[in-house]
């Protein structure tokens, strides 16, 4: 147990503490919007901005808020940020805003943001909370990108990215020939299946690591026992001699 809690590298941290596939937070928006890469990046950036700024603000005001009212106050902070981000998106990236629809407003009840505020931001310093916000936001965006990559490539055959502000295509590659793509991945069923596959993948990685750690500990325990027996035998032999 102590072995597996060591400091892990960046990528393995993203897999182990993945908020979407490991902890199942914020699933509603993940399933609904990951049809294209554009949507994923747009939503990811919105969540990073809201999460970081709300972490900073909440770590500043947490010492001042009385306990009865702390959840509604945090909710007001997050809701204000989401309203502002929504208005900015409506002004500068109108097509992205209309595709994402209510899911921008539903960032308020995304458990990642309120959960990190309650678990981390209210008891840590401003710089730590900001860094935690950025890391969790990047982790979430990474999961969104993974899902939308699979869904877009298998469902439409194209790997496409366009500038949300000007609607100009940045690149558009056809990876699967026309007529051979699998349209189910753009529907609800495909969303559920892709999510199930990725979640099972993350669980498999976690399970195999836990098994390795358990076997290593068992081997160590047995080696220690054997060493103890050997020293006991050598002490007895010395006494007999």
């Amino acid at each position: 147990m102590s072995e597996s809690k060591k400091k892990r590298g960046f990528w393995s941290e993203m897999i182990y503490n993945n908020p979407v596939f490991g902890l199942y937070l914020g699933i509603c928006s993940t399933l609904a919007i990951t049809t294209t890469l554009n949507n994923a990046i747009g939503m990811g950036v919105a969540v990073i901005v809201v999460l970081t700024i709300s972490n900073i603000v909440i770590s500043l005001i947490a010492p001042l808020t009385p306990d009865e009212i702390h959840i509604p106050v945090y909710i007001v902070v997050i809701a204000t940020l989401v309203t502002v981000v929504g208005m900015l998106m409506q002004a500068f990236t109108p097509e992205l805003y209309s595709t994402l629809g209510t899911f921008i407003d539903l960032i308020v009840v995304n458990c990642i943001i309120l959960g990190r505020a309650e678990a981390y931001a209210c008891t840590n310093s401003v710089s730590d909370s900001a860094r935690d916000g950025i890391m969790m936001g990047l982790s979430y965006t990474f999961s969104l990108l993974a899902m939308s990559l699979i869904r877009q490539v298998l469902g439409t055959g194209l790997l496409e990215l366009s500038n949300p502000a000007t609607n100009a295509t940045i690149f558009s590659l056809r990876l699967i020939p026309e007529g051979f793509e699998i349209p189910v991945f753009t529907t609800q069923t495909g969303a559920f299946l892709t999510f199930a596959l990725l979640a099972a993948g993350v669980a498999a990685i976690k399970n195999s690591d836990e098994k390795k750690a358990a076997e290593a500990e068992k081997a160590k325990a047995e080696a220690a026992k054997a060493a103890a027996q050997a020293t006991a035998a050598s002490v007895k032999a010395k006494e007999a001699a």
Partner: peptide, 15 residues
């Protein structure tokens, strides 16, 4: 079993 998913405040206690 998974109620920590639903309520963020409850999740902190579970963790």
């Amino acid at each position: 079993t998974g109620c920590g998913i639903t309520d963020c405040a409850l999740r902190k206690k579970e963790e």
